[in-house]
Design a protein around this nucleic acid. Sequence first.
DNA 1: CCAAAAGTGTTAGGAGTACACCCATGT
DNA 2: ACATGGGTGTACTCCTAACACTTTTGG
Lengths: 238, 238
Amino acid sequence: MAKRKWSYDYPRPALTVDIVLFTVAGALNDLRLQVLLIQRNESPFRGAWALPGGFVRQDEDLSVAARRELLEETGVSEAYLEQVTTVGTPGRDPRGHVVTVVYVGLVPADRHQLRATGDAAAVRWFDVARLHEVPLAFDHARLLVLALEHLRGRLGEVPVCFQLLPEEFTLSELQTLAEAILGRTLDRRNFRRKVDELHFLRPVPGTRRQGAHRPAQLYRFVPEKFAEYAARSRTLPF
Amino acid sequence: MAKRKWSYDYPRPALTVDIVLFTVAGALNDLRLQVLLIQRNESPFRGAWALPGGFVRQDEDLSVAARRELLEETGVSEAYLEQVTTVGTPGRDPRGHVVTVVYVGLVPADRHQLRATGDAAAVRWFDVARLHEVPLAFDHARLLVLALEHLRGRLGEVPVCFQLLPEEFTLSELQTLAEAILGRTLDRRNFRRKVDELHFLRPVPGTRRQGAHRPAQLYRFVPEKFAEYAARSRTLPF
DNA sequence: CCAAAAGTGTTAGGAGTACACCCATGT
DNA sequence: ACATGGGTGTACTCCTAACACTTTTGG
């Protein structure tokens, strides 16, 4: 055991961050919401799957800690992260009093090379729909639910979706993506009407030909227009 | 200085809770939103006004810590509290790395005997509208803004208002209260219609005669009816 | 009779939701 | 020709917000 070189007048709970990172993967007609988990290499829960996360360092901002842990344990960098809540229920960690700040994020699956390091024996994306087959360590199943609810609520307020799509995308792609995250279907006509009215999604010349059907108009997300829009209103089509 | 008897392998940030407790006070025609502040008795910021709060104890749940600190420093017990967010910006506390979990609450002003103890030299309600005259310690001004925004957003989703009113109250009292918290006026007719439709506010026999004008119908909050309602919808008149 | 708050309906606009058919392409 | 997803418009409902006059009391 290492020397216990840090001492304080009063006991301090340990402070961690846990990151619930989602992505959407699969064929366009069968997108699945996935979450990034690591296989623990240390006790407790050695061998179990868990959310990436770890201890907050001295003088480290919480969001910085979240990004750092994510990078260290999974190889994923540059994720958009948002704070969900903080959980410190006594007994949630067998090692003692551990308070964790939960972050949620959403990234494109293929742009990140997964790399398990340190206390992660493996890193993998898991289908959220099949998580009941995977018992998670600690109270991470609950944290995941909290994070997913948060993400679904924020989806219509923050332009995160567009980071998961190529620069030019079809409206069907955007809609299918939103449906995968929300876990429900959306009406295509209402969706497209809304997109028209928002006008921070601009049709660009060119179509995507794919499969035995009519080619689809390509669109592009215009950040400047979104900024204008965000200052006024806040109703996205999802 | 006390013996430093608690030691760990790695440094740990200190973890605190801060409580932003609001009330509404004043004459019915001039209700003012107020926040509970303590005058610090210790450095740093000795003599400055600050949010009540303090360190989370070993194996203490966060919400329990918030309630305990509130009681210890101000004498207020039994407040409805809700977690707002967690802030750990480096440099926010000159003593070092201090991460704080912010709670917000709302209580009736007169039902609590204020009592300053421990590291509070004084406890007082301050008009939120006049806080610019009171420089707050640490980043508490910012925490207060976050808490107020949170409260305003939740007002229509949680039946907190009714805790600030006598068991039987008039609709004007309820509306004036909501207006004081929200910081804007509401349309009286729309407000009353909404109340009718919700039917967890039930008119009870009796009126309040007060001043030189028509007496007002008394209403009562019916928790059971609210439970039914909450399961279905979520649109309160404020 | 005057001041002061209580009480009361209607309308217009916007947002959400439901719904069915033709179009352009590849095979 | 047919299978496949792309693309389009209308009607209904519900919620919100705006708006002005009469009623009942105390002084």
